[in-house]
Amino acid sequence: MVLLPRGNPVKENVNPGKINLPAALEKLQIGKFSGYLRFDFAEETGVIIFENGRLISALFEGSSQRLIAYDAIATIFEISLEGNGRLNVYRLAPSLALSVHALLHGDLLYKGQELKLIDIKSLLGRLKVMAMSGCLRIYTSDRVALIFYRDGSPLGFFHDGSTDIETTADNSLSVARMPGAKVDVLTTKGAGEGMLADLMKSADVTALWNKAQGELARRSRTVEEETLRVRSVREKDRRQNLLAVLTAVSVKHLGKIGGSMVEKEFEKSLSGALDEASLMVFYDRLSKAAKLVAGASKINSMLDEMKKGAKGILEEG
């Protein structure tokens, strides 16, 4: 789970599977967008960060994997196409976008510390002594605030709804005061504007998108084939069960020639779909053949028994 304040929302709760993501990224590029796209999936999160129209960072984080750059973009595309994700786009100031990028790719020093259980003054003192650059992430279940530090000195705050690093601590403090608030301490290595490449220039996101679409289609085909195979096996079993029941009843009433009659008429009348209509044709034909070896009352009682057995099997399907 990637914990980030929401920033200034541009689009919220969009299904990323229903939009052409390369085209959307291109629009953001042309529009010199700064901010981030957050993809929330069932168990994973993806973040794509733009700074002045440059796609500077991509991160995909799941419970057991963490991907960055092209791999992250490709995976975000693949999972988005499954259609169960949610996309939120937040605008940020370019400098904040860079800070967020640095934060996401930084190291986690402390994680999930209960705020009320730690000596915050002592912690801040340590950060100063260490001349640490990074941030404190203070969060609850639904709110997040970041306090950036550079060389051990506080730089500013980033909380839900803000687009730039702010100097007032009100919102961040309000998160810190909330019951159950926790804090993470993250260090950053620092990422200057000039150091970051534009991933959209160095990678063909349309090709990644097409590949993801191809992969999804292949998976769909595999699932479809498997579904068909399972259905076919089930249908075959059902057919064999029905034939076994009909044959047993026929042998009981007409002897072994009855079994042969059932097999023959089954092949003729029930080689297609197993439904009521084809069964009626089967009964009719079997009844005509059976008249050569048995009387009407015997045939009728046989058919009644067959219909009961067949009904049970058809209902199973």
Partner: peptide
């Protein structure tokens, strides 16, 4: 022999 155990046999 073919219809041995049928009603008509």
């Amino acid at each position: 022999l073919n219809v041995k155990d049928s009603p008509i046999s």
